[in-house]
Measured scan of single mutants.
Amino acid sequence: TQSIHIEKSDTAADTYGFSLSSVEEDGIRRLYVNSVKETGLASKKGLKAGDEILEINNRAADALNSSMLKDFLSQPSLGLLVRT
């Protein structure tokens, strides 16, 4: 696993530069990185398409609903625990 911390203040970007997809496997919801913008903040921090997001801001990914995800992604900083 890899811990990634991203700050939007690093650039004038209003997004982190990646998209997520939610997949249900064996009754457990998993979050995967769908795509990463080549010039985006997430790419600079090493996030890659296909990575599994285990935690966002110290909250287990399978416990997050879509409104919580939207809220986290609109925050000025983001902490991710990722399995590559």
Rank of each mutant, 00 (worst) to 15 (best):
G79I: 12
I4S: 02
L81M: 10
S21A: 13
V82R: 04
K37R: 11
R29I: 08
L78I: 15
T84G: 08
Y16S: 05
L80G: 05
R29Q: 13
S74W: 07
S67I: 15
D26Q: 11
E55D: 03
A13W: 03
L64R: 00
L54Y: 03
I4E: 01
F18E: 08
A60C: 15
I53K: 02
S35P: 00
A60K: 14
G46S: 01
D51I: 05
D71L: 11
S3E: 15
L54N: 02
D10A: 12
V23N: 08
V36H: 09
Q2T: 13
S21I: 11
K8R: 08
Q2Y: 15
S74Q: 11
E25D: 10
V23Y: 09
R83H: 07
A49K: 13
D71T: 10
G40T: 03
T1M: 12
G40K: 01
H5L: 08
T1A: 08
G79E: 15
L73F: 15
E25C: 11
L54W: 02
A13R: 12
Y16A: 02
T39K: 12
L41N: 04
L47S: 03
D51K: 01
D71Y: 10
K37V: 15
L69V: 14
A63K: 13
T39I: 15
D26I: 06
R59V: 15
I6K: 00
S3F: 15
G40M: 01
D51W: 07
K45L: 06
L78C: 04
E24Q: 11
A42P: 00
K37G: 09
T11Y: 07
E38F: 08
A42F: 00
E25H: 12
A60N: 15
R29N: 06
V23E: 08
V36F: 00
N65L: 01
K8P: 03
S43T: 05
E52K: 01
F72S: 08
S19T: 11
L64Q: 00
L80P: 03
K48P: 01
M68D: 11
I53Q: 00
A13S: 11
E55S: 09
G79H: 13
K70G: 10
Y32S: 03
D62L: 07
L54I: 10
D71I: 09
S43C: 12
I6L: 15
I4P: 04
T84Y: 04
N65F: 00
K44A: 10
S3H: 15
R59T: 15
G27Q: 03
D10E: 10
D10L: 06
D62V: 09
I28M: 11
T1I: 14
S77P: 04
L41Q: 08
A12I: 09
S66R: 08
S43P: 05
D71M: 14
A12H: 14
L54F: 00
D10H: 06
S3M: 15
A12T: 14
I56S: 03
K45A: 05
F72L: 13
S19Q: 12
Y32H: 05
R30C: 05
A42D: 01
S66D: 10
A63S: 15
V33P: 00
S3N: 14
K37Q: 14
L31N: 02
H5R: 07
F72D: 09
A61Q: 04
T15P: 06
N65Q: 08
V82I: 10
K44W: 04
M68C: 12
D26G: 10
S21G: 06
Y16D: 04
D51S: 06
K48H: 08
G40R: 02
A49G: 06
E38I: 04
E7M: 09
S35R: 11
L41F: 01
D14C: 07
K70Q: 12
D71H: 15
N58R: 06
S35E: 14
S21W: 04
V82D: 05
I28K: 13
K37M: 12
N58A: 05
L31P: 05
G79P: 03
K45T: 08
A60M: 07
S21Q: 15
I53T: 01
G79T: 15
E25W: 02
Q75Y: 08
D51A: 06
E24R: 09
S3K: 14
S74T: 14
L47E: 02
Y16P: 01
I6W: 02
K37F: 09
Q75W: 08
N57L: 00
E52M: 04
K37W: 10
S3W: 15
S77T: 10
K48E: 07
R30N: 01
I56G: 02
M68K: 10
G40Q: 02
L81G: 06
S67P: 08
S74E: 15
K70A: 13
K37D: 15
G27K: 07
E24F: 12
G50C: 02
D62H: 13
G50I: 04
T15G: 15
L41I: 10
Y32E: 05
D14K: 07
L54E: 02
D14F: 06
V23R: 10
E7D: 09
G79K: 15
L41D: 05
T1W: 07
I56D: 04
L78H: 04
Q75F: 05
A12L: 10
R30F: 00
L78G: 03
S66Q: 10
F18M: 06
M68R: 05
V82P: 05
G50S: 00
S3Y: 15
L20F: 15
D51L: 02
E25Y: 08
R30D: 01
G40V: 05
G27E: 02
S9V: 01
L41P: 10
A13K: 14
S19W: 05
I53N: 01
L81E: 10
A61S: 09
L64K: 01
G17S: 02
S77G: 05
L80W: 04
D71V: 09
L47P: 02
S19V: 07
G79Q: 15
E55Y: 03
E24V: 14
E55F: 06
T39E: 12
K70W: 06
L47M: 07
N34R: 13
S67G: 09
R59C: 14
E52A: 02
N57W: 00
P76T: 10
P76G: 07
K48M: 09
P76L: 03
S77Q: 05
E55N: 05
L78N: 07
G40F: 09
T39C: 13
L31E: 02
D10N: 10
G79S: 14
G50T: 03
A63Y: 06
S9P: 10
L80F: 05
G40I: 01
V33C: 06
S74D: 15
S35V: 07
A12Y: 06
I6V: 06
S3T: 14
I56T: 00
E24H: 09
M68H: 07
N34A: 13
S19H: 09
R59A: 11
N34F: 03
V23D: 08
I53M: 00
M68E: 14
K8A: 05
G40E: 01
S67L: 11
A61V: 14
E55V: 04
N58S: 09
A42E: 04
S3V: 14
A61H: 07
K8M: 08
K45Q: 10
A61L: 11
K44P: 05
L64I: 14
L80D: 04
S67V: 08
N58T: 10
S77C: 12
S22Q: 13
R30L: 02
S9F: 05
I56Y: 00
Y32W: 09
H5E: 05
L20W: 12
I4Y: 02
S43W: 15
D62Q: 11
K45H: 09
E52Q: 09
E24D: 13
V82Y: 04
V23C: 11
T84P: 15
L20V: 14
N34E: 14
Q75T: 08
H5S: 07
G17Y: 00
F72V: 11
P76W: 09
G17Q: 00
A13P: 08
I53G: 01
T11W: 06
R83G: 06
N65M: 04
D10S: 10
G40C: 06
R29Y: 04
L31W: 15
E24G: 04
V82T: 13
H5N: 07
F18V: 11
S66A: 14
A42S: 04
E55W: 03
E38A: 13
G79V: 14
E38W: 04
S43E: 09
D10G: 11
S3C: 12
I53D: 00
S19R: 10
K48I: 03
S9I: 00
G40A: 06
R59E: 13
N65A: 06
Y32C: 04
E25G: 08
S21Y: 11
S35G: 08
I56V: 10
D14Y: 03
L31T: 07
